[in-house]
Each structure stands twice: as structure tokens, then as C-alpha cells.
């Protein structure tokens, strides 16, 4: 009967018959809740989110977290150094003509407030990774408040300045349209969809669509990278994690989302190396993955052999 009570309050509070009837317990609860909301115009949030996440607040409402990973970091059975061998599209699965310089790649993955799409869904976390001589720099922009969104979107635009090539997993269909939608709400059109962009989901479908049980990133990790993620936070819990921070100031889940996002980015990066034909794909059943075998991918390299485990 919440709405009844609301209707009364809108009608100017004068409740129906006089003398005023005793209010039911639910009504009292609702009134208390409404009152609490009114008082909490600016929530008493004393937690320093930037500090908890190990980052810094670069704009009001926007936190930047930067991590660097050395090239010998092992992710699954591969090392990040594999990325440096990428020169072009050796198998033709990337649909990329011409050279492909690892230094120009920007790996992208976002976490959003929902999967439904539409104007009301936003990215509260954008993770980008770039390869440098000494390792992979992974940068995460996290919204601590809605106020930071415009800065978040322009930070991404700035990073994608010139000569960069986006690499994502399902970014053409999901992340980029969503970011464009939000940018337009802030009055910008960064024209992200027009940027050079390799969407590895499409690549994976072309290369292994028939060999893998499905084309999810997780499946590709298992079969191509030999990575078994432990109790990582499932991606669909990300929306709840950010809401928990926003409405209750809880950060446990949010920390897990950041870790999840970093793992996704590392996987995306190494998946590129595999799909570009530079690193041999790990497979439970090599016969069922003719594309991976047949694209001139040479005999397994020493380091990949060492990391390979047949389950």
C-alpha cells in the first residue's frame, strides 16, 4: 500500500476522514524511509574510494587506477611478451590488412550498470591496456559518482587520439555503442564507431566458431589460453557491485569487479596474440580446431610448450 500512502501525501497530506485514523505499521515504515531519504540528500560517505582502490581521484567523481605488468607475467600458459611478436594478421581471421604495431593497440573493456542497453545504461568502469617496452600498462577509470562520467568519457577519447587501434571482445556490439550513447547524452559525439577496431569476438567466431562449445571470453580463455579463473566475480554481478557502492558505500564487490576487469583485459590482449597467429592456441582437442592448427602456426614454441597442460 505504498502507493496509497504516496497518493495521500501528494493530495496535501490531509488524510481521508477526520479524526485521522491510526497509521498502520507499514505506513510508519514508509514514512520513516521517505524521511531518511530526504535527510540523506548528500550521503555521509566518508570512505575514500580512491585510496581503497589504490588509485587517485583525477576529476570529481572519477578515479584512475593504474597497474603495470611486466612482460614475463604469465596469464594462463602464455606470457605477456607474446604480444610483442604480433606484427600483422597472419591467419586472416582479424580481417586486418597491413602491419599491426603492438604499441598502437589499445585494449578496451567496460563494466556497465546493466546489459539491457538503452540510454539509461552506463559504463561505470572503463579499463584500457597498452603495451610499452617494459610491460603492459593497465589503466582503469572508475566512477565514484555520476558527476565523473563526462570526464570518464573524455579520458577515453583522449587516449584514443591518433594512430591507435582498439581491441576488444564484443566491443563493436556492446561497449562502443553504449559509450557513444552516453557521450551523446553529454553532448559529444566522439565517433568511436569510426575508429579502427578489432573485435575479437568476431575473430573468434571466424576462427573457432565450430570448434568451441561457445564463443564466450571465458570459454576462449579455457581452450585457447589455458586459463582457469578461480572464483572470479561473474560479469553479471557488476551492476549490483556499483549500486552497492553508490547507495550503501560498500566496496568489497567493487574491488572484485576491478580485478575481474583486469583479468578480462589481460585475456583480451593475449587472445589477440593467439588469434593473430603468433602464439599457438592451447586446445583440448587440436583436431577439432583445424583453423588454429592450419594457419601456419608453427610447431609449438618452447615457452608455450612449457605452459601447456592437457587436462
Amino acid at each position: 500500500m505504498d502507493l496509497t500512502e504516496l497518493r495521500r501525501r501528494l493530495a496535501g497530506a490531509a488524510p481521508a476522514s477526520s479524526p485521522a485514523p491510526a497509521l498502520s505499521p507499514e505506513t510508519h515504515a514508509l514514512l520513516a524511509r521517505l524521511e531518511a531519504i530526504r535527510r540523506r540528500a548528500s550521503p555521509p560517505r566518508r570512505i575514500d574510494l580512491a585510496q581503497c582502490l589504490g588509485g587517485r581521484e583525477v576529476r570529481p567523481g572519477l578515479i584512475e587506477v593504474v597497474r603495470r605488468y611486466p612482460l614475463d607475467l604469465q596469464h594462463g600458459r602464455l606470457r605477456l611478451a607474446e604480444l610483442n611478436r604480433v606484427e600483422g594478421d597472419r591467419c586472416g581471421h582479424l580481417r586486418w590488412s597491413g602491419p599491426l604495431s603492438p604499441a598502437r593497440l589499445v585494449f578496451l573493456d567496460t563494466e556497465t550498470t546493466g546489459l539491457a542497453g538503452g540510454a539509461g545504461t552506463l559504463a561505470f568502469l572503463i579499463g584500457v591496456a597498452r603495451l610499452f617496452a617494459d610491460g603492459l600498462e593497465l589503466r582503469q577509470w572508475v566512477l565514484s559518482a555520476f558527476a565523473g562520467e563526462a570526464a570518464l568519457l573524455s579520458a577515453l577519447s583522449a587516449m584514443l587520439a591518433a594512430e591507435t587501434v582498439l581491441v576488444s571482445f564484443n566491443g563493436k556490439t556492446f561497449d562502443i555503442p553504449l559509450l557513444e550513447t552516453r557521450a551523446r547524452l553529454h553532448g559529444h559525439d566522439p565517433r568511436l564507431r569510426e575508429r579502427p577496431h578489432i573485435d575479437l569476438l568476431h575473430t573468434l567466431r571466424r576462427a573457432h566458431g565450430r570448434g568451441l562449445p561457445d564463443c564466450r571470453l571465458k570459454t576462449a580463455e579455457t581452450h585457447l589460453l589455458g586459463l582457469a579463473r578461480g572464483d572470479d566475480l561473474p560479469g553479471d554481478q557488476a551492476p549490483a557491485a556499483w549500486r552497492a557502492w553508490l547507495t550503501r558505500g560498500e566496496i568489497d564487490l567493487l574491488l572484485a569487479v576491478l580485478a575481474h576487469n583486469r583479468n578480462d583485459l589481460l585475456s583480451t590482449a593475449l587472445l589477440l596474440a593467439v588469434l593473430a597467429g603468433e602464439a599457438a592456441g592451447f586446445s583440448l582437442d587440436a583436431v577439432r580446431l583445424p583453423a588454429a592448427r592450419g594457419c601456419g602456426s608453427p610447431a609449438p614454441r618452447p615457452e608455450s610448450r612449457s605452459g601447456s597442460r592437457r587436462v
Binding site: T113, A116, G118, G120, A145, P239, R243, T247
Partner: peptide, 15 residues
């Protein structure tokens, strides 16, 4: 979710 003078949609749904 209220932030300053603005009210933002935060539910994971398409109303």
C-alpha cells in the same frame, strides 16, 4: 539515485 540536484537511473533493467 540522487546526486546533488540530479536523479539518475541505477537499476539493471529496461523499464
Amino acid at each position: 539515485h540522487r546526486e546533488g540536484a540530479s536523479w539518475h537511473w541505477i537499476a539493471d533493467s529496461y523499464p
